[in-house]
Design a binder for these strands. Structure first.
Lengths: 249, 249
DNA sequence: TGTACATCAGTGAACGCGCGTTCACTGATGTAC
DNA sequence: TGTACATCAGTGAACGCGCGTTCACTGATGTAC
C-alpha cells in the first residue's frame, strides 16, 4: 500500500510539483501577467490541455504560486530569525528584515507577485491569507518577546530645535483611537497575547510596512542612480525602523 | 498664424491628448499589463493603425502615461504642501505624505504603474527620470528648509529597558560610510544645498520609502482585515516617520 | 494468477478571441507660386 | 484669388502570433472478482 499512496497518486503529486516549478521558472523570466498555461505545458513537453488534469484553470495555478511564494518567504524569514540568540531582539529584527530583502532579491518576480501590483483580473481566494501571515507572525513574535522581556523602550520624541534632543519629552504620537479594535485583535493573534500596548503595535506595523517599502523601492528601480550600496543602506534603515518600535540597537 | 500653430497642429495636439486620456481611462479599469493600442483605438472610434500617427509604439504610449502620472502625483504633492505655512515643517511633511496617499487612492492603477511591479517587457527610457523626481524634490525641500531653520532635531535613540527612555543617549545609528558619496550628491540636488548631514539624509530617504511602503500596503491589499481606519493609521505612521527624520510633531 | 471492467492521463483538433505592427491606399488639409 | 503640388490623417486588409478552455478520443494503469 506504500503509505496509502498508489503509484498513480505518487506520479500525480510529482507531476503537479513539476508543473508548478515550470510555472515558477516562467514567472521568473516573464512576470506574473505573462504567465501562460500553454508556455508551461510547452516546457513540460505536454499538450496544453493536459495541464487541466492538474489545475482547474490558470487562476488556480497562479493561486498555487502565490501560496508557495508566501510560504517560501515565510520559511526564509523563520530560518534567518531562528539562528539568532533569543534575547538579542534587535538582531532578530535585523535578521528577519534582511531575510525579506535577500529572498526578494533572489526571487524578484515572486516578490512582485505577492507584494507588487495585483495581477489584473485575478482575485486572491481566501486560502492565501494563512500563508500570507507567516512572515508577519515572525515579526509579531519578536516584538512580543521583546516586550515581555522589558526590552521595548518608549522612544523619546526628537527635540524640536537647536539640533539637540529634548530629553524625556514623552513618547511618540499615540495611535489613533480608531486603531484600538484592530490593535486588540492583533495583540492576541500576531503579538502572541503578550499585552503589547496599542502604540507599540501601531509603530511595529508602520515599521513593518516601511521595511517592505524599502525592499520594493530597491526592487522596482526607485533607488536606481540614488543609492549605490543598497545592502548597507537597507541595514541602516532597518536599524532606524527597529528603533521606531523601541528595539534598541 | 495663431501663435505659430497651424490648425492641423492644433488638432493633432488635441487628438494626442485625447488618446492619452482614453489610454488612462483604460489603464484605470484594466491595469497596465492589459493596456492595448487596439482597445484605445476602439474607444477613440479609430482604426488601430491610426494610433501610429500619434505614438510610435505601445511602449511609447506607456512612457507618456508614466510621465504624466509622475507629473500628476508631483503636482498633487506640490499643491498640498504649498498650502501650509512655511515654518510648520511637520505639517508640511504630513501634507505632502497625505497628498501621496490621496492621489494613490484616487488613481490606483497609475500609482501601480509608477510604484508597483515593473510592466513585463517594458524598459523605462531616460526621459521618465525628471518627472519621477518631482515629488521627491518636495520632500527634499521640506527637510532642507527645516534643517536650515534649525528645526531638525537629533532624535535620541529609545532607551533599552524598563519602558522609560534613556534621554540624551546620543543619536540614532549613523549612516554607513558607503552612503557618503550618494549623500553628497543628494545634498546638492534634492536637499537644495542646505548642508543637511548624511545621517539626516539617510533617515529622510528611509522615511520616504516607508511612506510609499504604507501606501502600497494599503493599495495592494496587505492591510485587508488588518487595519480598519486606514486614513487615521496612515496619519499616525507618517508622524512617526517624520519623527525619524527629526521633524518634531 | 488471470481476466473484465473502471479509472484516469495525455492527445489533438478546434473555437473564438485579442494582440502589435506593417503597408498600400484615399481623401482632405495645407503651402507656394 | 486661383491653381498645382506636397503633406498628412485615417482606412482597411493582412501577417503572424499567442492565449484559455472544451471535447471526444486512445491507451495505459489500477481494481475487483
Amino acid at each position: 500500500v506504500n503509505a496509502g499512496r498508489t503509484a498513480r497518486e505518487r506520479v500525480r503529486a510529482e507531476l503537479t510539483r513539476e508543473i508548478t516549478e515550470a510555472a515558477r521558472r516562467q514567472l521568473a523570466t516573464a512576470g506574473a501577467a505573462a504567465l501562460s498555461l500553454r508556455a508551461v505545458a510547452r516546457e513540460m513537453g505536454m499538450v496544453s490541455s493536459a495541464i487541466y488534469r492538474y489545475f482547474a484553470s490558470r487562476d488556480d495555478l497562479l493561486t498555487t504560486l502565490i501560496i508557495e511564494s508566501y510560504n517560501a518567504l515565510g520559511a526564509a524569514v523563520e530560518d534567518a530569525e531562528a539562528g539568532v540568540a533569543r534575547d538579542a531582539f534587535p538582531a532578530r529584527w535585523a535578521a528577519a528584515c534582511g531575510a525579506i530583502r535577500e529572498w526578494a532579491l533572489r526571487h524578484p518576480h515572486e516578490y512582485a507577485l505577492i507584494y507588487g501590483s495585483p495581477v489584473p483580473g485575478y482575485r486572491a481566494p481566501e486560502r492565501t491569507v494563512g500563508p500570507a501571515a507567516r512572515s508577519a507572525a515572525v515579526f509579531g513574535k519578536i516584538v512580543a518577546d521583546a516586550y515581555r522581556a522589558g526590552a521595548v523602550g518608549v522612544p523619546s520624541r526628537p527635540g524640536s530645535g537647536g539640533g539637540s534632543s529634548a530629553p524625556g519629552s514623552g513618547g511618540w504620537p499615540s495611535a489613533p483611537g480608531s486603531f484600538a479594535a484592530d490593535a486588540a485583535r492583533l495583540r492576541e493573534s500576531v503579538f502572541a497575547g503578550a499585552g503589547v500596548p496599542d502604540d507599540v503595535i501601531a509603530r511595529a506595523l508602520a515599521a513593518w510596512a516601511g521595511v517592505f517599502g524599502m525592499v520594493s523601492f530597491e526592487l522596482f528601480g526607485q533607488f536606481e542612480n540614488v543609492i549605490t550600496d543598497r545592502g548597507a543602506f537597507f541595514g541602516h534603515a532597518v536599524a532606524c525602523l527597529g528603533a521606531v518600535i523601541g528595539l534598541d540597537a
